[in-house]
């Protein structure tokens, strides 16, 4: 129970960061999405799926656009990560999973805006990689995830 509350609290803070964007449009990343990847990598499918759907819904609700695809995207990403982790447990697989999830997210959103902003996409990959590394560093002790589980 405490674990789930901590996940909920962490994801709420990440959603708040996405909504307030304290660094404006200079940081090209989506913290909620990174949080969902983090939870999907470190927690069982059921937990990750529930949080994926809840925060996908929250993100859709906070979004100003009429198309609600985050709820489906987050759920599919969680299932995709579970499937790969089920088959591959090597350290390289984690990098592959993380970048595959980011590229899927880039593709879905680029299709949604009907354009491919190359420079923005590159910066999104770089910024998200660094943000995920920091997130992993900060959240792992808080959510009591043993480092061995990450490797």
């Amino acid at each position: 129970m405490t674990r789930n509350l901590r996940i909920l609290f962490s994801l709420l803070i990440l959603l708040l960061l996405d909504l307030t964007k304290p660094f404006g449009y200079s940081l090209f990343t989506e913290f909620t999405f990174l949080g969902i990847i983090f939870i999907a990598i470190n927690y069982p499918l059921q937990t990750a799926l529930i949080f994926g759907i809840i925060f996908g819904y929250f993100k859709d609700a906070a979004s100003t656009t009429s198309v609600s695809f985050n709820i489906f995207e987050f759920a599919l990403i969680v299932i995709f990560i579970y499937y790969f982790l089920h088959n591959f447990r090597k350290k390289a697989a984690f990098f592959f999973i993380f970048y595959a999830a980011l590229i899927i997210h880039l593709m879905v959103n680029n299709i949604y805006i009907h354009r491919v902003p190359y420079f923005f996409s590159l910066l999104f990959l770089i910024h998200s990689s660094v943000a995920f590394f920091l997130l992993n560093y900060i959240l792992s002790p808080w959510l009591k995830i043993p480092q061995a589980e990450n490797e």
């Binding site: 909504l19 989506e30 993100k59 656009t65 959103n109 680029n110 949604y112």
Partner: peptide
């Protein structure tokens, strides 16, 4: 007071 949570949209409240 708030931003669209998506990085692909530039809409603010």
């Amino acid at each position: 007071i708030s931003f669209d949570p998506s990085s692909w949209r530039r809409i603010v409240l």
